[in-house]
Design a protein around this nucleic acid. Sequence first.
DNA 1: TTTGCAATTTGAATTATTATAAATACTTTT
DNA 2: AAAAGTATTTATAATAATTCAAATTGCAAA
Lengths: 146, 146
Amino acid sequence: MEELQNLTGEDIRERLNRHGLKATPQRVLVYEAMCRLGHASADSVYRHLGGPGSPLTIATVYNVLESMTEAGLLALRPSFRGKMFFDVNADSHFHIYRKDTGTVSDLRDEKLLEAVGEGIRAILPDGLVLDRVEIQLVCHDPNHER
Amino acid sequence: MEELQNLTGEDIRERLNRHGLKATPQRVLVYEAMCRLGHASADSVYRHLGGPGSPLTIATVYNVLESMTEAGLLALRPSFRGKMFFDVNADSHFHIYRKDTGTVSDLRDEKLLEAVGEGIRAILPDGLVLDRVEIQLVCHDPNHER
DNA sequence: TTTGCAATTTGAATTATTATAAATACTTTT
DNA sequence: AAAAGTATTTATAATAATTCAAATTGCAAA
């Protein structure tokens, strides 16, 4: 598993190119931010990069996030918050959504994921193709002070 | 299983009361709309009720949907669209999200749901309590004309 | 009744997203 | 290396979605 945190600019440019995206400075910045943040809304990326006063516009952040999602570099995840929510890990895995803190984290289990996929394909209505499965585990820590 | 479509105003008022909510006219209207629509955003509820010119405000729709969700009458589901998305069936079940049509439908399978829940509890990090599991099946119909 | 209180609703403000058209930056062709 | 063409970014505006504080309502206590 690669450490997204520690990718060099060159690594990022390569990765963009491999996904068919030209490595513009703005794209490198946004991807760096996503690596750092893991999961983020357009706005949080923008703020991470300095908000107004940063070397790009919020419109560009949206554009870039969309291109990257289309290219398969990022995934757009379903969200409870009423805003768009991007994931730097585009592969399939579980998401732990913590009600108490509002944070999201990843949980991977190849075996279980595979089993769930099979179970679902078995009951899916005829004529439909399953593209992917998104699973959120809504959790809380009972010892987390309110 | 009750037919939500066919509830009378009295049924709805009762249901609201049982969930600890006063049966105001606005709440009855919103719940009726949710019964009709099944899944809906605040905006689609508002439009279903006549939009501007209806006997309530979009802000009221949000407030009412929130109260009902808090009361357990509705569920707030995660959404790909970057907007809040409510479900008149607050119980746990799968959601089929169709990329080609943008529509959402329900899929129920007690057995599989139970199995998934167990599998997940087995791998959940220590200290966390699993409140519920949300599962979206992202699908498309290959024969759906583009 | 009036008064006070809490719940509910609303209009207005805020935040989030998309659209558009002009400017910039790259590429390719000449 | 100029011209032409394409992709990207930007500023700005328009629209959409959500929140918030003030006003209203309905009820209960005096």
